[in-house]
Design a protein around this nucleic acid. Structure first.
Lengths: 164, 164
DNA sequence: CGCAATTACTTTGCGCGCAACGAATATTGG
DNA sequence: CCAATATTCGTTGCGCGCAAAGTAATTGCG
C-alpha cells in the first residue's frame, strides 16, 4: 500500500442504484446486528453467545430436541449446529446421543445445569424490551411484518428453485 | 457420544420465557439471514459477498471513501473492514492508500474495473424486489419500522453506557 | 514546547453461517 | 432380497463480525 495523491477522483456518475442506507436489505442487516449486540452483555454472564441462546431457548421450551429440529426451527444447517452443540455439551449444559431406533438421528437433552441456567435467563426478554423502548403496538406490528417478509422470501426462493 | 435410552425426559416446567420463534430478536435474525441468502446467487456471478456488496454500493455512490466512513455508515468495525477491503483490492476493484495530510487515515477509491462492476449490479435491487413480492406500501412501512427500531436500539445502548 | 490523550487503523483469536464433500443409516422400488 | 435413493449428521474451508491488544500519527493541554 502506497500513499496517494491529494485529488479526488470523479464520482461514479448517475446512480440507478438506490443509496445503500436506504435499502430494505441494509435496514434488516443493521437492525439484526444492533439487536444481537444488545443481547451480548446480558448473555456474557451466562457464557452464551446469541445463537447458543436461541438453541437453549428451544431446549428450555421442549426439554429435548433432535438436531434436525434446531435446523428447521432456527433455519441453521448442520455445519453450524454440530460444533455449536458440541461446545454446549463440553460446557455441561446438554447431552447428545444417537437415537437407538434411527442411528442417523442425534437427540439433544438438557442436563440439570442446563435447566438451572434458564432461571438466570428469565429477565433477559424484559430487559431487552426496556432498552428498545418502542410502544407495544408498534413493536408487535414490526415483529409480524418481519414474519411476513421472511415467509415471502422463503416462498420466493422456493419458487426460483422449482422452475425459474 | 453414546447411544441414549428411549424415554423422554420431563419437560422443563412452566415457561416464563416466550417461545423462541415468537420473539422479535429471532424474527430479525431469521429475516436478515433469509434476505442475505436471497442475494447470494445474484452476487456470486459478480464474485461479491453481501458485506462486500454493501461496501461497493457506498463506493459506487461516492466514488471514494475513507475507511472510517464505511465504519460509520455500515456500522462495521476495522477488524471486519480491513481484511474485507484488502480482498477487494487484491481482486482489483479498488485501491487503498494513506492520506498524505493525515497518515493515520486510509482512503479507498474505485478502480476502472470496480466502476465497471456497477453495471452488472444494476438489476439486483429490482430482482430482489420481485422475489420478495410485498405491496410497495407494506415494504416501505417495514423498512421504516426497522430504521426506527435500529435508532431506538442504538440510543438505548448509548444510554446504558453513559450512566447505567 | 513536551507529553498525555485521542484517532485511525492493523492484527489475532474465536464463533458463527454457509457451501461442498463425505459417511453412515434408513427407505423405497424392482 | 438387492440396489438405488434419501435422510441425518459430520468435516473442512472461507468470510464475516466482534473483542482485545497493539502501532503509528495527530491533537490538546499545561
Amino acid at each position: 500500500m502506497v500513499t496517494m495523491p491529494d485529488r479526488s477522483p470523479a464520482p461514479a456518475g448517475d446512480f440507478p442504484l438506490p443509496a445503500v442506507d436506504e435499502q430494505m436489505c441494509f435496514a434488516l442487516y443493521a437492525a439484526s446486528r444492533a439487536v444481537v449486540n444488545l443481547y451480548r452483555p446480558l448473555l456474557e454472564p451466562l457464557g452464551l453467545t446469541y445463537p447458543q441462546y436461541l438453541v437453549m431457548m428451544l431446549l428450555w421450551e421442549r426439554g429435548e430436541c433432535w438436531v434436525k429440529d434446531f435446523g428447521s426451527v432456527l433455519q441453521l444447517d448442520y455445519g453450524t449446529l454440530t460444533p455449536l452443540l458440541k461446545r454446549l455439551e463440553v460446557r455441561g449444559l446438554l447431552h447428545r446421543g444417537r437415537d437407538p431406533r434411527d442411528e442417523r438421528s442425534v437427540r439433544v437433552v438438557l442436563t440439570d445445569e442446563g435447566r438451572r441456567l434458564r432461571e438466570r435467563a428469565e429477565g433477559i426478554p424484559e430487559a431487552i424490551g426496556r432498552v428498545i423502548d418502542l410502544p407495544e403496538e408498534e413493536f408487535e406490528a414490526t415483529r409480524l411484518a418481519l414474519r411476513r417478509l421472511t415467509a415471502n422470501v422463503l416462498a420466493g426462493e422456493a419458487r426460483l428453485h422449482e422452475d425459474g
